[in-house]
Amino acid sequence: MPTYDYHCSANGQTLEAKHSMNEELNTWGELCANTGLALGATPADAPIMRLITGGQIVSSRALKNPEMPACASGGCGGGMCGLMN
Protein backbone atom coordinates (compact mmCIF):
# COMPACT_ATOMS: atom_id res chain seq x y z
CA MET A 1 0.00 0.00 0.00
CA PRO A 2 1.48 3.39 -0.94
CA THR A 3 2.36 6.04 1.62
CA TYR A 4 1.53 9.72 1.28
CA ASP A 5 2.63 12.81 3.20
CA TYR A 6 -0.06 15.27 4.29
CA HIS A 7 0.36 18.74 5.77
CA CYS A 8 -2.13 20.60 7.94
CA SER A 9 -1.59 24.36 7.85
CA ALA A 10 -3.90 24.82 10.86
CA ASN A 11 -1.40 23.12 13.20
CA GLY A 12 1.77 22.99 11.07
CA GLN A 13 2.05 19.18 11.29
CA THR A 14 3.05 16.86 8.47
CA LEU A 15 2.10 13.20 8.76
CA GLU A 16 2.63 10.10 6.67
CA ALA A 17 -0.44 7.98 5.90
CA LYS A 18 -0.85 4.65 4.13
CA HIS A 19 -3.91 4.13 1.97
CA SER A 20 -4.97 2.92 -1.45
CA MET A 21 -4.46 5.13 -4.48
CA ASN A 22 -8.24 5.45 -4.85
CA GLU A 23 -8.71 6.90 -1.36
CA GLU A 24 -8.53 10.64 -0.67
CA LEU A 25 -7.98 12.30 2.69
CA ASN A 26 -9.19 15.89 2.88
CA THR A 27 -9.46 16.84 6.56
CA TRP A 28 -7.42 16.61 9.74
CA GLY A 29 -10.05 14.28 11.19
CA GLU A 30 -9.73 11.85 8.26
CA LEU A 31 -5.94 11.93 8.55
CA CYS A 32 -6.04 11.29 12.30
CA ALA A 33 -8.45 8.38 11.80
CA ASN A 34 -6.10 6.89 9.20
CA THR A 35 -2.94 7.26 11.29
CA GLY A 36 -4.43 6.60 14.74
CA LEU A 37 -3.41 10.03 16.01
CA ALA A 38 -5.62 11.97 18.45
CA LEU A 39 -7.23 15.12 17.05
CA GLY A 40 -5.80 17.32 19.77
CA ALA A 41 -6.80 21.00 19.61
CA THR A 42 -7.06 21.02 15.80
CA PRO A 43 -10.64 20.98 14.46
CA ALA A 44 -11.55 17.74 12.68
CA ASP A 45 -12.70 19.70 9.61
CA ALA A 46 -9.38 21.54 9.19
CA PRO A 47 -8.24 21.04 5.57
CA ILE A 48 -5.08 19.10 4.78
CA MET A 49 -2.94 19.03 1.64
CA ARG A 50 -1.24 15.99 0.15
CA LEU A 51 2.40 16.79 -0.52
CA ILE A 52 4.28 15.74 -3.60
CA THR A 53 7.08 13.36 -2.70
CA GLY A 54 9.59 11.30 -4.64
CA GLY A 55 7.74 8.06 -3.99
CA GLN A 56 9.21 4.70 -3.18
CA ILE A 57 8.60 2.40 -6.10
CA VAL A 58 10.64 -0.80 -6.20
CA SER A 59 10.83 -2.89 -9.33
CA SER A 60 9.72 -6.47 -8.80
CA ARG A 61 12.70 -7.51 -10.93
CA ALA A 62 15.06 -5.92 -8.40
CA LEU A 63 13.48 -7.94 -5.62
CA LYS A 64 13.69 -11.27 -7.45
CA ASN A 65 17.12 -10.91 -9.06
CA PRO A 66 19.41 -8.85 -6.83
CA GLU A 67 22.81 -8.10 -8.31
CA MET A 68 25.79 -9.56 -6.55
CA PRO A 69 28.46 -7.09 -5.42
CA ALA A 70 31.57 -6.84 -7.60
CA CYS A 71 33.64 -8.69 -5.01
CA ALA A 72 31.47 -11.79 -5.40
CA SER A 73 33.18 -12.31 -8.75
CA GLY A 74 36.61 -11.42 -7.40
CA GLY A 75 36.41 -7.74 -8.32
CA CYS A 76 37.26 -6.10 -4.98
CA GLY A 77 40.74 -7.54 -4.45
CA GLY A 78 40.97 -10.28 -1.89
CA GLY A 79 37.60 -9.94 -0.19
CA MET A 80 38.36 -6.57 1.43
CA CYS A 81 34.65 -5.80 1.58
CA GLY A 82 34.07 -8.79 3.86
CA LEU A 83 32.37 -11.00 1.27
CA MET A 84 34.48 -14.04 0.59
CA ASN A 85 34.06 -16.23 -2.50
Rank of each mutant, 00 (worst) to 15 (best):
A38H: 15
E67A: 13
G82H: 15
L25I: 02
G36E: 00
E67I: 12
A38S: 10
N85V: 14
K18L: 05
D5S: 13
A10C: 15
A62E: 15
T14G: 07
G40R: 13
N22D: 10
S9P: 06
L37Y: 09
R50D: 05
I48P: 01
G75F: 03
T27S: 12
G55Q: 04
T14W: 02
I52N: 13
I52L: 14
Q56C: 10
A70P: 06
Q56G: 05
N85P: 05
M68N: 12
H7Y: 11
E24S: 15
N26M: 07
V58R: 15
M84D: 12
E67Y: 12
E67L: 15
P66K: 09
Q56L: 09
S59D: 08
N26G: 06
C81W: 11
A62F: 10
Q13G: 06
A33C: 04
I57D: 08
P66I: 03
H7G: 02
A46F: 01
D45C: 00
G82A: 06
A62I: 11
A10K: 06
G78E: 08
E23Q: 07
A72E: 05
G54S: 10
M21I: 14
A62P: 03
S59A: 09
T3S: 10
R50M: 14
N85H: 15
S60C: 11
G40P: 07
E67M: 15
E30Q: 12
G54D: 07
L31Y: 02
T35P: 02
G12P: 00
L51A: 10
Y6I: 02
L37R: 04
K64A: 10
G79L: 08
P66N: 14
G12Q: 10
T35D: 01
H19D: 05
S59V: 00
P47M: 14
A41R: 13
M68W: 09
A17K: 00
M68A: 12
D45T: 03
N34T: 05
Y4H: 02
L51I: 05
C8G: 07
T3C: 07
K18H: 12
L51G: 09
C81F: 14
Q13A: 09
D45H: 02
A44F: 04
Q13F: 09
D45K: 00
C71I: 06
P66G: 06
H7I: 01
A72C: 09
P47N: 11
E16A: 01
M80V: 13
G77A: 11
S60Q: 08
L51S: 06
H19K: 07
L25W: 00
E23N: 11
G79E: 11
N11E: 12
Q56N: 06
E23W: 04
R61S: 09
A44H: 05
C32S: 05
S60H: 15
N26S: 11
H7T: 03
M49W: 14
M1R: 13
L25V: 01
K18Y: 06
D45L: 00
G78S: 11
A72N: 08
V58H: 14
K18F: 04
N22Y: 14
